[in-house]
């Protein structure tokens, strides 16, 4: 039922950043939904261990691009992906790729918090247990480590066996971040992770993202330019499914090359 025509175009030897663990490269990526082309040949190489923000007006394909990287389009009938995506030099859409393993390396955080309807502790430990990256004896240490990492430990340490749905929206999103980090991913895909959160939690999460980027490649989709300015090392500006500009953040915000980027940064479009 799912037809995917994936042509690996010239990815035999990825050079530079892309083949380093955590390096993400996209080559001539077309994504189609039925007859609609959502991405028209996007190519970019994201620096490892840096924060790359993907910005652009609503409907420009930011989320589509992000979801191509961990193959989230697989389960949507009618979605076709062509071109190539490599993570750490390995073709994501290549033959014999285990999607399960790919998604262990490439974590994802969604627009709204979506914790499992399980206990808080299980939220963190279920995926590592399923992947066999932690033993039963190591679970409680793993849970504590990652809840501490996102700064949630003190708030939940007395109710680890309770439902996460009693937590605030921001705390739930932090729990989802902890859950993702518990798999020690190389790449973190963030799909407008703070769009539903209050300023304090947003600031906290932005701090975490900066801090995490020392060891994880972060791709963050955001419609919030100020946020991109605060956290991004590089900015990819998409419009209508095509790349307009991909530049270091400072360049993009202060001296963009493209006229449309200038218009977008100054708020004239978007």
């Amino acid at each position: 039922m799912l037809t995917r025509a994936v042509g690996s175009i010239g990815v035999g030897s990825q050079v530079g950043a892309a083949s380093v663990p955590g390096g993400v490269a996209v080559r001539d990526l077309h994504v189609l939904y039925r007859a609609n082309e959502l991405l028209h040949g996007v190519s970019s190489t994201f620096r490892p261990n840096a924060v790359s923000a993907i910005v652009g007006p609503t409907g420009c394909g930011k989320t589509t691009l992000l979801r191509s990287i961990n193959r989230m389009h697989d389960s949507t009938p009618g979605m076709r992906v062509t071109g190539s995506v490599t993570v750490g030099g390995e073709d994501v859409y290549g033959r014999g790729v285990v999607v399960r393993g790919l998604r262990r390396k490439v974590g994802m955080l969604f627009q709204r918090a979506n914790p499992f309807p399980q206990s808080i502790a299980d939220n963190v430990s279920l995926a590592p247990l399923a992947h066999g990256t932690v033993s039963r004896h190591g679970v409680s240490a793993l849970v504590e480590e990652h809840l501490r990492l996102v700064g949630l430990w003190d708030a939940v340490k007395d109710r680890l066996d309770r439902s996460p749905f009693h937590l605030s929206g921001g705390q739930q999103q932090l729990l989802c971040l902890a859950r993702t980090l518990a798999l020690s991913p190389e790449v973190l895909l963030l799909d407008e992770p703070t769009s539903a959160l209050d300023p304090d939690t947003t600031e906290h999460i932005e701090g975490l993202i900066k801090q995490l980027s020392a060891r994880v490649t972060v791709l963050v989709v955001t419609h919030n330019l100020a946020q991109a300015n605060r956290i991004a090392d590089d900015v990819l500006f998409l419009m209508a499914g095509s790349v307009v500009e991909f530049a270091p953040a400072q360049t993009f915000f202060q001296n963009p090359a493209d006229e449309r980027s200038r218009a977008y940064v100054s708020g004239r479009i978007g």
């Binding site: 989230m72 979506n114 309807p117 995926a127 992947h131 859950r179």
Partner: peptide, 16 residues
């Protein structure tokens, strides 16, 4: 769908 995708995005199988 969002709840299920949270699990799939962590590499959990359909069964899990």
């Amino acid at each position: 769908v969002l709840a299920k995708e949270g699990s799939l995005a962590l590499g959990m199988t359909k069964h899990e």
